[in-house]
Design a protein around this nucleic acid. Structure first.
Lengths: 125, 125
DNA sequence: TGCAGTGTATTACATACATAGTACAGTAAA
DNA sequence: TTTACTGTACTATGTATGTAATACACTGCA
């Protein structure tokens, strides 16, 4: 089992990864994503867990199934994910980050410093 | 049942709230926190769930029990929480926030704008 | 056609989480 | 001592999650 957090359901984390893959351009509209068995073996999880993840993304209209062929990224997957993630990020994630900064006494400058630091670390890879 | 997220165990969210209460000064070292039954009724959860939460905080040395009397905030609770939260925030939360900003195409300025906006909203309350 | 690789469905089992109810033991105060 | 709170410790039940194994139906291709 590779690299999953203990505090969140695996199938949810897998769905997040697929979405990240779509946002980053790894998967494009119309692309086929790994089969349930393939991904299960690759990540070292049970195939049923992958199925659960794919069913969730299907219900959200981000991927769609073609029986016997596989799962494919929908045409408007990117827009759906962006809409959803952007509002969640602005309305839930950021306020929580600010609240924690307040509690921990972390100044605003640290935020911009760490951000630049993080960007630099990207170029190093 | 008041106000709990679906994607994280209730007892973990309750522990987080107690820690927030200590960081914000609501609970001070030596203070007694609500009894398991009292908090269970107040939050509309089962007493056993509160127990699980308190046992976790006990193991972390943030609160300690006095049988027959209740649970009390330890003297170094604040330091313990600050150490733990600060490293988690800087090493886990922030990188994840920056990663999401990158994926969502949210510029750095939005971060500082939203932060000021959030600070203003505090004063309005 | 046959075959390998797809999704789909089912059953069984284990663990974590949460609820519900009951009982017992320690403490403080009337 | 009695009473009313505490924490502590059970048993039982149900749901969500994750694993394991098996079977079936569909699609593309040799």
């Amino acid at each position: 089992m590779t690299d999953f957090r203990q505090d969140k359901a695996i199938y949810l984390q897998m769905a997040d990864r697929i979405c990240d893959g779509i946002l980053s351009g790894e998967y494009r509209p119309g692309d086929r994503i790994p089969s349930v068995r393939e991904l299960a073996v690759f990540l070292g999880v049970n195939a049923n867990t992958v199925v659960k993840s794919y069913e969730l993304l299907s219900r959200q209209g981000i991927i769609q199934t073609r029986r016997g062929m596989g799962y494919y990224v929908t045409e408007d997957a990117m827009a759906k994910i962006l809409d959803d993630h952007r509002t969640r990020f602005l309305e839930e994630t950021l306020p929580e980050v600010f609240r924690q900064m307040q509690l921990l006494g972390i100044p605003a400058e640290t935020l911009t410093e760490k951000r630049e630091e993080w960007l630099r670390s990207l170029r190093t890879d």
